[in-house]
Amino acid sequence: MTKEELKITLTGLLPAATFEESGQWLNVKVSSSEWFNSAGLLRNQNTLQFDFLFCETCVDWKTRLTMVYFLRSTVLGHELVVKVDLDRDNPEIESVASIWRTAEFNEREVYEMFGVKFLNHPDLRLLILPDGWEGRNPLRKDFEDPVNMVKL
């Protein structure tokens, strides 16, 4: 499906979503409360079949956090980017590990790097950072580590 066709299909499915087409792919913005249901639709809808979450990450905009999900359909070959804005002080979002298994590890990474809490995540623990790093999120823009960080 092309960008335009995707947009038409998605407008019908996700009435609350907003679109942005400037980049490489169609960007869909949904709210964090709707995200889990939308994800289920994107995954299971016959015309969409986004079965491959090939990248999941987070961007810190200093005022808010944005979760970015990159989806691809291995059957139909189209791609989509879903963005979900989160409150920076108390970021919480439903986990999609039950829909795409790869999300489990990616969400654990985002959890420790950005401090986003994933609700209903099967095993939300630190993955990369050692014990005792809970609450310190290295990839946030205001993270400071005077010992290990070298400013250029």
């Binding site: 990248c55 990450t57 489990e104 590890f105």
Partner: peptide, 24 residues
């Protein structure tokens, strides 16, 4: 994945590494 703010350095960069997913 690069988020650019028009500066000389990327604002945010993310590497989607194959090994990470394969390991999972």
């Amino acid at each position: 994945y690069i988020v650019s703010e028009g500066a000389t350095t990327p604002y945010r960069i993310k590497f989607r590494s194959p090994g990470f997913s394969n390991l999972s």
